[in-house]
Nucleic acid binder design. Structure first.
Length: 840
RNA sequence: GGGCACGUAGCUCAGUUGGUUAGAGCGCCGUGUUGACAUCGCGGAGGUCAGAGGUUCGACUCCUCUCGUGCCCACCA
């Protein structure tokens, strides 16, 4: 027979407990995915963070914790959990970081050497990240880790390219592309941000061949040398006579055609529009549709070229000022005024994008919008209103997906070009991953193009081309030997991510899955908000640096918080906002988390004191025979279980936290455990049966509470399980025990109503004690209850035992009360026990 | 300009299909300790639920409009 021992540690030592739990979890390997378990699989696709550039802050801790609440609950609910973790060490952020850290230039270092530096650097970052995730208690199966530059991921990305190529979903074109002049690379639409700024709108005088002035309006005078046409609205009577004619461009003196377009607004500026190569997307469209001349005046480095005449060599900004000045001096500026403009800038560079002509690889999207919208509609969205963001993005797509980047560090395209014929040689699937700038093309190609010049594609794929593969990376789509995970876990159960990358990561992943597998990548998506600083702004590097004190403590640094308050406390904070909503960080909220952890420890200590010697394997009193206090708490507990289970089904961890907190504090600690004390303190007025009833109920409720708290507070709940419950019921860990189900034999047979009466009277007594400055535990001589009618009096009388126990009173009397209670018509009064007075 | 979300106590937020005197945490005030917990208990103050209309027997909740905040999208050159 096993019985319960009292918890011996008076103080809860989170550091010791967390270390103990981590060791236990490592040793027992309970988080490892077992494909043979026969249980339904719950697989989760979480963001692979950039490991180099950014430092972790509580916002990261928040969103990963929110996902992990769900994971832990699903594991307990009987799912076989597949929980990998990835790191994104590809792409521009890493490249920039390495360039700056090692002071290297991509033009003077070999691709292999540079990649090695990136790999080394990101390996360091990954160590930090893994340590952080472990400290937070993320139940990741670390055998499933991937990093986007490793062989498996490069292989997957290149296989994706080959598959798209075969399916005719990818093409190469030499078209105007969005161009970042700072990093000198092409960009995709999704890489753009909008910058609001003040600009100037100039009215500038062009002329007709006969010298008649023609005044156009533009915010970009530096593009005048690139002008290839003027447009006006066909409805615009002012210019009707110009149609089909020509205009002479100032500064350069070249002639351009004058055309009409319904899109020109008659009330904007002068109603005459200058079209250039290329000022914006509209220019590109007219250039294509009307087969305009090409006068590309801005080079890939953002400087003007020889077409700009004396302005050659100036950057866009300088040229704009210089040209405006010269035009003004020449008397050609009719008007200039300030305007608000919205310009597209590179997300990373912050520099306004230009257009450049360079051959690029594109994935077809524009003719697939309907299919992609349909896929998006198949997904289960949590919260559901986030779906609108994807729909709007797809509807607003203007370009196919340009995946070429004129950068260095990324996954190479698996192909070579034959200079003489222009043919494209694709890598053989067996030779992936391949780097065409270093590796030879396949044997058959070397033979076929013998004697010709074969060059590997020097561009690399953009980073999203790889990260959009994470579900297929996890499911080992390419069949890398030795990797755990097969297409059996595909589509995955859920993707977790923040809202700002719906248009990128979510969208591209959907695209890839649709094209490669004809199915969704996951069944559902869980979209989280951001952790914000006290001011409600995104947490910045500045926050992380500025608020560090002498001890190295920083309130935005998850490590600092975990060390000071414990991982459970940080996680408890993270559960504080509903899914999809931002959460402001306040240290005091983590302290509140800490408080509930300590309270849980203490209430467990109290329970073990009352339960000392209790044998849970012995028959317990049927619920129907227990006291009303016990039946009441079990009814409340059943409701709690239902609430949490329902919340978790829709990824709403916050419902559960809220309900748990309310139950734990208001029902359990403040009332239930106080109400049962009398049965142990004054055994002479309670039966053995009622004591056993309390013990059984206390045991059951504490066990259920431990399980319900487990997804949120994995460490303390594990500690309680190991110390109290495991010796009695066996099992390895609370985290692989069963998720609680409502107890079927618990029905609300009036216990709640009766307890309302007891608690109402108790509230009145507590008020009187407080008024009279009498301790809440001091014994009362009499409890006097004033009832409005005989029926109420009879109900109160029937509850005498409970009332005396609750109020620690010796006698119940009926008479006139001193104060109201929350219950209509019932008033109470108290007298303090004489003998205690004497004892003092 | 369009879309999405939001506006509830000093601060941060709950409030599940509309139903009696709107809740919590923190903060504030008062008070209590030989029996889990001062990392605590008990009590208290504090809100015209952004504003205005409308639907309804009844609105924090549903509808319309206005104001304000955040984010996303947008070629007004």
């Amino acid at each position: 027979m096993s019985t319960i021992k009292v918890l011996d540690d008076k103080n809860y030592d989170h550091e010791a407990v967390e270390a103990e739990c981590r060791d236990l979890w490592d040793e027992t390997r309970i988080y490892e995915f077992d494909p043979q378990s026969g249980k339904p699989v719950f697989s989760i696709d979480t963001p692979p963070p950039y490991v180099s550039a950014a430092h972790l802050h509580v916002g990261h801790a928040m969103s990963y914790s929110q996902a992990e609440f769900i994971v832990r609950q699903r594991r307990m609910a009987g799912y076989e959990v597949f929980y990998p973790m990835g790191f994104d060490d590809n792409g521009l952020p890493t490249e920039r970081y390495v360039e700056q850290t090692y002071k290297v230039d991509k033009k003077t270092i070999s691709r292999a050497d540079f990649r090695q530096l990136c790999i080394d650097e990101t390996a360091k970052g990954a160590v930090t990240y893994e340590a952080m995730w472990r400290a937070l208690g993320l139940s990741v199966d670390w055998r499933l880790r991937y990093s986007t530059i490793d062989d498996h991921c490069r292989h997957t990305a290149q296989a994706s390219f080959l598959d798209l190529y075969k399916k005719n979903l990818i093409y190469r074109a030499n078209e105007p592309v969005l161009w970042d002049t700072k990093y000198e690379t092409a960009l995709a639409q999704a890489d753009l941000e909008t910058l609001e700024r003040k600009g100037k709108l100039y009215d500038i005088r062009f002329s007709a061949p006969d010298g008649t002035p023609l005044v156009i309006s533009t915010t970009r005078p530096e593009l005048i040398p690139a002008c290839v046409a003027l447009y006006f609205n066909p409805e615009d009577g002012r210019y009707a006579h110009l149609a089909g004619g020509e205009a002479i461009v100032p500064l350069t003196g070249h002639a351009v055609p004058i055309k009409t377009s319904a899109e020109v607004k008659t009330d904007f500026g002068t109603g005459l529009m200058m079209v250039c190569t290329f000022g914006d997307g509209e220019d590109v469209r007219k250039w294509k549709e009307d087969k305009l001349d090409t006068r590309l005046v801005i080079n890939q480095d953002g400087k003007l070229n020889d077409l700009a005449g004396k302005y050659a060599g100036l950057d866009v900004q300088t040229a704009r000022g210089q040209i405006a000045k010269d035009l003004r001096e020449a008397g050609l500026v009719e008007d200039e005024r300030n305007v608000e403009q919205a310009v597209s800038v590179g997300e990373r560079s912050g520099v306004p994008v230009e257009f450049a002509m360079a051959p690029q690889w594109f994935v077809s999207l524009l003719d697939k919008k309907q299919e992609l919208l349909a896929r998006g509609a198949e997904l289960g969205w949590f919260p559901d209103w986030m779906k609108a963001r994807l729909d709007h993005w797809i509807e607003g797509l203007k370009y196919d997906w340009n995946i070429s980047r004129q950068r260095f560090y990324g996954v190479p395209f698996p192909l070579w070009y034959v200079e003489e014929t222009g043919d494209v040689i694709l890598a053989d699937p067996e030779q992936l991953p391949v780097d065409p700038t270093e590796d030879a093309p396949p044997q058959w190609a070397r033979e076929k193009y013998k004697g010709m010049t074969i060059t590997g594609e020097a561009d690399v794929m953009e980073t999203w081309f790889t990260s959009s593969m994470t579900p297929l990376i996890n499911a080992n789509w390419v069949g890398t030997p030795g990797r755990i995970g097969t297409m059996d876990v595909y589509p995955m159960s859920v993707r977790v991510q923040a809202f700002e990358i719906i248009r990128t990561w979510l969208f591209y992943t959907l695209v890839k899955s649709h094209f490669h597998t004809g199915s969704l990548p996951w069944k559902e998506v869980m979209i989280s908000g951001w952790g914000l600083n006290e001011q409600g702004k995104k947490i910045s590097k500045r926050d992380l640096e500025k608020f560090t004190d002498q001890d190295g403590y920083n309130r935005y640094d998850p490590y600092s918080l975990v060390r000071r308050f414990g991982a459970d406390a940080v996680r408890y904070w993270a559960a504080g906002s509903h899914l999809g909503n931002d959460l402001r960080f306040h240290e005091k909220d983590v302290k509140a988390g800490r408080k509930i952890v300590v309270k849980l420890w203490n209430v467990a200590r109290l329970a073990t004191m009352h339960l000392e010697g209790f044998d849970p394997s012995a028959p317990r009193p049927p619920v129907a025979e227990r006291t009303i206090e016990d039946r009441w708490v079990l009814v409340e507990l059943n409701r709690l279980v239902e609430t949490l289970t329902r919340g978790f089904e829709t990824y709403d961890y916050a419902i559960g936290r809220e309900a748990l907190e309310r139950f734990f504090w208001r029902v359990y600690c403040d009332n239930y455990v106080e109400l049962i004390k009398d049965r142990f303190w004054t055994p002479e007025r309670h039966s053995d049966a009622s004591r056993l009833s309390a013990q059984a109920t206390l045991y059951e409720s504490l066990r259920t509470l431990t399980a319900l708290f487990a997804p949120y507070l994995p460490f303390i709940t594990e500690a309680l399980f190991q110390r109290i419950f495991k010796p009695l019921e066996g099992g390895v860990s609370i985290h692989v025990s069963d998720w609680p189900a409502p107890q079927a034999d618990v029905v609300d047979d009036g216990a709640s109503e009766a307890m309302d009466l007891v608690l109402g009277i108790l509230a009145g007594v507590r008020f009187l004690r407080s008024e009279a400055k009498v301790s809440q535990t001091r014994r009362l001589d009499t409890l006097t209850v004033e009832c409005p009618d005989d029926a109420t009096r009879a109900r109160v009388e029937a509850l005498a035992t409970s009332l005396l126990a609750a109020t620690h009173a010796a006698r119940l009397e009926f008479g006139s009360g001193e104060t109201d209670t929350p219950i209509d018509g019932i008033r109470v009064a108290i007298t303090v026990a004489e003998q205690e007075e004497a004892a003092e």
